[in-house]
Simulated scan of single mutants.
Amino acid sequence: VQAGQRLLIEGAAGNVGRKLIQLATAAGVTVVTTSSARDFDQCQRLGSQACYDYQSGFGDQLVRDEWTFDHVIDTSGRVALATNLDLLLLGGEVTLITAPKDDQFTFGVRAFYMAQKRINGFVISHATVDQLARAAEVLNQAFSAGQLLDDQVSQQHFSDAPRCHQWLEDGQDGHQRFVLLPD
């Protein structure tokens, strides 16, 4: 994604999505997001130009609002690939950073081909040393500028690990992060 382009981040309220909003906005990219409606304010504070509820047919809403994108990043794995492809401009790309729940896809291959669209998969364990070094550079610059440090971190003891795990499983703490320390 480059300055002046449009990016749709799906699942933007999660840890990865929030960081993507900030990095893309700082790079001069127009960012649009999907999340739960309760997270719209946070996404907008981080730089999202428009927020859509991922639970309410956002693809149709984006089309009605005349949004199309150079790049779509799906952090959730819950969006139909055909929906993402339909939202792309000529030469646009979809990047999946998690395995989609639906392992089988149907989409218009001819339209995909004619519009020179691309599908990327990103698995961090396959990243090269050069890719990781470039990413570390960008992240370290952002950290030095005081960016990307908005996570709520709760310090808990090792003995609290089962309770923390249960909170995360139950979704009780939203986007809470835990650091476990020796008792």
Rank of each mutant, 00 (worst) to 15 (best):
I97W: 03
F178N: 02
G174S: 12
A80E: 13
D53C: 03
V32W: 00
F105H: 14
M114R: 13
L81T: 09
L7K: 01
C43W: 00
K117E: 04
L89G: 09
R64I: 10
L46C: 04
D103I: 08
T83M: 09
G171P: 06
S144H: 07
Q55I: 01
Q104L: 12
D130R: 13
T34E: 08
A13W: 05
R6D: 12
R78F: 10
D70N: 14
Y52T: 06
G17A: 02
D53I: 00
N84C: 15
G171S: 08
I73V: 15
C164P: 01
D160W: 03
G57I: 07
F158Q: 09
Q49D: 08
Q61T: 13
T98A: 13
E93S: 14
T106P: 00
A142M: 02
L139D: 06
G28Q: 06
W67A: 04
L20K: 08
F143V: 06
I119W: 07
L87S: 07
D102A: 13
F40K: 04
A82P: 06
D60T: 11
L96S: 06
G59K: 08
G47N: 01
S36K: 15
E169V: 08
G121D: 00
L8H: 02
N84R: 12
T75A: 11
Q42L: 14
D74V: 04
Y113C: 10
T128N: 04
I73M: 09
A145D: 01
I21Q: 07
G171K: 08
S48W: 01
H157A: 12
I97K: 04
A27N: 09
G92E: 02
Q166N: 08
T95S: 12
G28Y: 01
T30H: 10
K117I: 01
D173M: 14
G57Q: 12
A161S: 10
R45F: 03
W167F: 15
A133H: 13
D86S: 15
P162V: 10
L168W: 07
D130C: 00
D53Q: 04
L139K: 00
F69H: 01
R45H: 10
F58T: 05
Q156T: 05
I124V: 14
L85N: 06
V1L: 09
K101L: 11
A111D: 12
S125E: 00
V123H: 11
A26K: 04
T98D: 03
F158A: 11
V79C: 15
A127Y: 07
G174M: 09
G77N: 03
Q156L: 15
H175E: 12
E66P: 02
V94Q: 05
Q147S: 06
A13N: 12
F112Y: 15
E169W: 04
F40H: 13
S76H: 02
L139P: 05
D65Y: 00
K19L: 03
Y52W: 09
R18T: 14
F122A: 08
